[in-house]
C-alpha cells in the first residue's frame, strides 16, 4: 500500500467490515448504557423510569462489589500465571522428539475442546469432590483428610479448572513460537558456553516474548468474563468468595431481575476491562511491534 491511490482504495474496501463491526459493538453498548440509567426490573417491566446514577451507586455500594473486582483480577492473574508458565514448560517438553509425539500433542490439546460447563462439572464431581473425587482418593491413600475444595478454596478451585482449560491454548501458541527458534543460534550459544538455563533465559524467552504477549492478551479478554465454571460449581460462594464481576452482574440480572443494576454493572465491567487493557498494553504491548 505504497501509493496514495491504493491507500484510499484500501480504506474504501475495508469500510464495510469496519462499519459492520462498529454497529455490532455500538448497539449493544449503547443499549446497556441506556438501561444503566433506568429503573427497570423484570418483575415489573412496564414501570420503567429514569434513575440517574442510582444504579451505579447501588451496584457500587453492594458489599459484594469490591470482593468481585478482586476476585476477577485474582482469577485472571492466577490463570495467566499458571497457563503461561505451564504452557512454556509443556511446550519445551513436547518440542523434544519423544516416542508417541503425535498422540502426546493431541492429548495435550484436547481439554480445549471440552465445553466449559462440562469440564467444570467433571472437575467438581469426579476430581475435586470431597468423598468420591480423585483428589480425595489420593489424600486418603496418603493418609490425609480429604479437602473439600469448593468450600475451602473456592476461588483457587475455579482458577485450577479454568487454567486446565486454557493451558492447551497457551501451549499451542508457545509451541509454534518455540519451533521457529533458529537452531544455529542455540548452537552458537552452546559454543559460547551458555548453560541450558542461560540459553533459555537469553534466547528462548526473548524469542517467545511475542507469543507470550499474544497468549496474555487473548486470554485476558476471555478470563475477564468467566462465568459458566462458577455457575455450575460454587454459585459464587461460599458468601462472595468466588463471585467475580461477571457473576455479580448475572446475579443482579437473573436472580434479582434488576436490568438497570445489571446494565450498570456491565458498564463498570467495560471500564475495568479497559483499565486492564491499558495496563497490559503498557506492560507487554511493546513486544508486538
Amino acid at each position: 500500500m505504497a501509493t496514495r491511490q491504493t491507500q484510499s482504495l484500501a480504506k474504501i474496501m475495508r469500510a464495510p467490515a469496519i462499519i459492520l463491526l462498529l454497529i455490532w459493538m455500538i448497539v449493544p453498548l449503547g443499549m446497556t448504557l441506556y438501561y444503566s440509567f433506568l429503573n427497570y426490573n423484570l418483575l415489573n417491566p412496564t414501570q420503567t423510569s429514569w434513575a440517574g446514577w442510582f444504579n451505579y451507586q447501588y451496584f457500587y455500594t453492594d458489599p459484594a462489589f469490591w470482593d468481585s473486582i478482586w476476585n476477577t483480577l485474582i482469577l485472571v492473574l492466577g490463570v495467566l500465571c499458571i497457563t503461561v508458565v505451564g504452557g512454556i514448560l509443556i511446550a519445551l517438553l513436547i518440542d523434544k522428539p519423544i516416542f508417541g509425539q503425535g498422540i502426546v500433542r493431541i492429548l495435550v490439546i484436547s481439554p480445549f475442546f471440552v465445553m466449559p460447563p462440562v469440564a467444570a462439572l467433571i472437575w467438581k464431581n469426579m476430581i475435586m469432590h470431597p468423598s468420591y473425587g480423585v483428589f480425595a482418593d489420593v489424600a486418603q491413600f496418603l493418609g490425609m483428610a480429604p479437602v473439600d475444595w469448593f468450600a475451602q478454596y473456592p476461588l483457587f478451585s475455579i482458577i485450577l479448572i479454568v487454567a486446565w482449560q486454557w493451558l492447551p491454548f497457551a501451549t499451542l501458541i508457545l509451541l509454534t513460537a518455540l519451533q521457529s527458534l533458529d537452531g544455529e543460534q542455540m548452537e552458537a550459544a552452546e559454543m559460547d558456553g551458555a548453560s541450558a538455563l542461560s540459553r533459555f533465559i537469553y534466547l528462548t524467552l526473548p524469542h517467545m516474548s511475542r507469543a507470550i504477549t499474544v497468549v496474555i492478551l487473548i486470554q485476558t479478554i476471555f478470563l475477564l468474563s468467566i462465568y459458566a465454571e462458577i455457575l455450575v460449581t460454587t454459585n459464587g460462594g461460599p458468601g462472595n468468595a468466588s463471585t467475580n464481576l461477571t457473576y455479580l452482574i448475572y446475579r443482579a440480572a437473573r436472580l434479582n431481575f434488576d436490568i438497570g443494576g445489571a446494565a450498570a454493572g456491565g458498564i463498570i465491567a467495560v471500564v475495568l476491562a479497559n483499565i486492564v487493557a491499558i495496563f497490559l498494553m503498557r506492560a507487554v504491548g511493546k513486544n508486538l511491534d
Partner: peptide, 21 residues
C-alpha cells in the same frame, strides 16, 4: 567433551547472531 569445553569459536553461515541483543 561438550562444545563449550573445547575452547573453539565458530562463525556460522547464517551468522546466528542473537536478534534480541
Amino acid at each position: 567433551a561438550g562444545p563449550a569445553k573445547r575452547g573453539l569459536a565458530m562463525v556460522f553461515q547464517s551468522y546466528a547472531l542473537y536478534p534480541h541483543m
